[in-house]
Design a binder for these strands. Structure first.
Lengths: 207, 207, 207, 207
DNA sequence: AATGAATGAGAGTTCATTCAT
DNA sequence: TATGAATGAACTCTCATTCAT
């Protein structure tokens, strides 16, 4: 007892951490499949095998678990994005860096979440985006908006420009996740080329 | 019932049609403001002044009214898109035509719906897209996909290409609706230029 | 249809009123038997034979039905008390009037509520006082407090005095309700005599 | 367990007793502040710093701790009341004795409980009476009932009489506790005078 | 004996839908 | 056909109690 007192994880602590993670994982899946509104707390805990009340030992509400997921994603992603941005000398490099960071995150997250719902079974009224993806995407969007506001980007209509860049990044990213193998390099190359040069800028190949 | 059934539609038929339309209008607003999940049937009928049960004389469920709205949008839009496409000799013209048709539809719909919810009051987890907008957007997407599949588009990765074009069209369209006055020409020009030439293709102006 | 349009109660209105009353009656019983905290909305509706959700067609919450009951009692009682007070020339008459009004109300309410729960089965932690009784009692208490504050009462410690008078009124009233037949006159006489003259003032009889 | 079981109580026994007392103290406060229904076991143990489960090492249920408190109060109070009653030659002295004993108990209990909840913050539907107060009050009531049954009291309606005496005792006692300093003598004098002579019997002073 | 997470029944409440009027 | 009250399943959340540690 005396020794272990320094750092006694014990079964209790282990299950506690494991349960919390189980709830987060289940919540991620459920939010991804059903969307925030449709998803119920019961959907989440049902997937964990825990009892209904147990959810509330870990999170105070449906919203809180959503936020936890989102901010976890943002927290992990922010330094990656920052590092990538730091290396960028100009707008082109910045875009490349930001999108690559984003796609790396998506790919990694996707791998570790073992997202095994059968694709194509999309329900109506649903987005198929986990809270983390949403949060991380927001980071990228903010970075792009900021860069555009700073004047780093070409002098076109900045509002439309931001919307377009962001849209490309998001949608190509989503497509990337649907393919096997997940090809971050290729997706990044495509998105960046599309943003920089449109159809004319694309490598006229691989069709 | 026997009298009213003869050709001159009679008051009954008129109200019937009017009620159906009132419900559709209310539903469009409510779905646009609240999203499908959050919107309740009561929200919809409350806006019409009709009674709760009356809703079910016209639609069998909440879902059905959503679908009705969506397919109405698609039905109205399809010929417009078709006409525009018919005039297109090549991919460039096709993109231009499709996007313009889409934006014209958006602008028109927007105008006639008198979308007067105070902007900026967006709730979390909600998209602000009516079923019609969603449906019409799907038409555009399908057209682009089809065109790409047909080989009309430049020979880049067609899946990514479609995703990117569609994403630009959608997001720039949404931004367009948020501005006053609604400038279909400008938005179309931007979206098309972005798709064709990326940043380099944009008119380097108006910042 | 034309005639009835002036005042068409119809079965609907009737049931509506009846249901509202049924809920109020059930709520009164349940609150009286179980107390506010212990009583559940389900306890209330179960007694009416209605469905769970129906409760919320009539009252927005458990609290609202309690308040409705209480204010209904107060509303009915206030004019009675006022009338009785108006006739009182002095403190003695005022006390007599107020208590009599209170007891009359209790007796009447009791009669019409057909309070047929088997007496003696009082649960622990429970008061056996309906919201109406509580509300009406508050009226009496306020009247006494007011009168004492106005100096109408004998010059003893007013705080203690009020507490004592009120306590007597309440407890004797409760005893009165437990007896058959309910003897308002006798209870009033006792309470007033006790207040005015204590044990010495009581009619030394009927033991 | 074997060691600690020998006579010198050892730390274990001490903590055991201390914990039990801590729970009782916390429970008294919580029941007094919140009432039985509203009070939760968590409210109680939170105040002790103990863990939730520990509560059930000492009491089998929320109800049991309530009962323990009540019977502890009664057990302590019974001899005091008995002693006071023994000295009473007649009804007047008995009443005086019983009420004084009751008020002494209240005052003492109140002092030692350091009841420091901000007054005036009374919630609706809540009484502000600890289980002990309720239990001790019951003792007094029983004594009065007994005395009346024995014919010691003046020959008025005994049921009403008991109710009235008890009511005065209780309410004046409660007021007494709300004042500073707590004046047992004065409260007793008032209550006894009121019982014996009603308003006419009161010292016509201190208003 | 102490801990505190897990449990699950049950609370208040909402809402799509039904149905008597 | 219009009405709007009735329905009841399902929701979020609480809490007394249990039990592995």
């Amino acid at each position: 007892m005396s020794e272990a007192a320094v750092l006694p994880p014990g079964k209790r602590e282990l299950t506690k951490v494991a349960n919390r993670q189980a709830i987060l994982d289940a919540a991620r899946e459920v939010f991804g499949e059903l969307g925030y509104e449709t998803a119920t707390v019961r959907d989440i805990i049902r997937r964990t095998g825990l009892a209904a009340g147990t959810f509330y030992n870990y999170f105070r509400s449906k919203d809180e678990v959503y936020l936890a997921l989102a901010s976890e994603g943002a927290r992990q992603f922010a330094p990656l994005l920052k590092a990538q941005r730091a290396q960028s000398a100009n707008w082109e490099e910045f875009v490349q860096a930001a999108i690559e960071a984003y796609y790396l995150f998506l790919a990694d997250a996707h791998k570790s979440w073992l997202n095994q719902r059968p694709p194509g079974e999309t329900q109506p009224h649903v987005h198929g985006e986990t809270p983390e993806m949403a949060a991380v995407f927001n980071e990228v969007r903010d970075a792009i908006l900021e860069e555009i506001a700073r004047g780093g980007a070409p002098a076109a209509d900045p509002d439309y420009l931001a919307a377009a860049c962001i849209a490309i990044a998001r949608e190509v990213g989503e497509k990337m996740l649907a393919r096997r193998p997940i090809d971050v390099k290729g997706a990044t190359a495509f998105a960046v080329a599309m943003i920089q040069g449109g159809l004319k800028g694309l490598p006229q190949a691989e069709a």
